[in-house]
Amino acid sequence: MCDVCGCQLHDHHHSDSKIVEVNQSLLEANQKQAASNKTHIEKMGAIAINLISSPGSGKTTLLERTIDELGDSVKIGVIEGDIETERDADRIRAKGVPAVQLTTGGACHLDAPMVHGGLHVLEHFGKGKGFDIIFIENVGNLVCPATFDLGEHHRAILLSVPEGSDKPVKYPTTFKGADLFMITKTDLLQHFDFDIEEAKSEALKIQPDLDILCFSSTTGEGFDQWITYLKNLLSA
């Protein structure tokens, strides 16, 4: 029997060993920063939308057309996340909209501290005119960004027709955390075996409260629903 505690186990010792109950989330540092980002965005007078998708699903093209459609009626700011290059930010700036490029140098997702830095730079670029909507275009990746809250008010997942309608089943974690599911490049439906009903029903099984929009940024088909959706978010 153990002399110290009287128990029947002999494979432990009481030297200087101590047990500490921690019960703390390992994402807490990110979550705290995300909460502070959210307050920061609201102080800027804006709401933020985190756009998550695979590379090439049409995030930047969506933003370009959205800027064109909204014109001067809504003040937009964009934070772009990529592994390398300023290319996406340059495309947004060409539309006359302030854009900050975050290059992760290899990391597969944006995290809240990176976005914190981005918000300060965006404020500077905005020259005090303020913002109504800040789009945060995450690193193209349908997996890792799902784990990291950035302080956004809404999280949108884009899935383009060429990627296939089985993606909600294959990447469920990403859909579970989303508010909006956007099926893009619907102008290509005739060329691909994409089952819109399958994509919708599988996504709704994972996240029953999901809003779903289908549209093409190229032809503009269905785009007015997206614009209405944004305006409703702004007036909410």
Binding site: S17, K18, V20, V22, N23, Q24, S25, L26, K205, I206
Partner: peptide
């Protein structure tokens, strides 16, 4: 009609040190 509930946690529960 079942849907995943919770289960997104990553928690440091306990630590033993000397």
């Amino acid at each position: 009609r079942l849907s995943p509930s919770g289960g997104t946690e990553l928690i440091l529960k306990q630590l033993e040190m000397e």
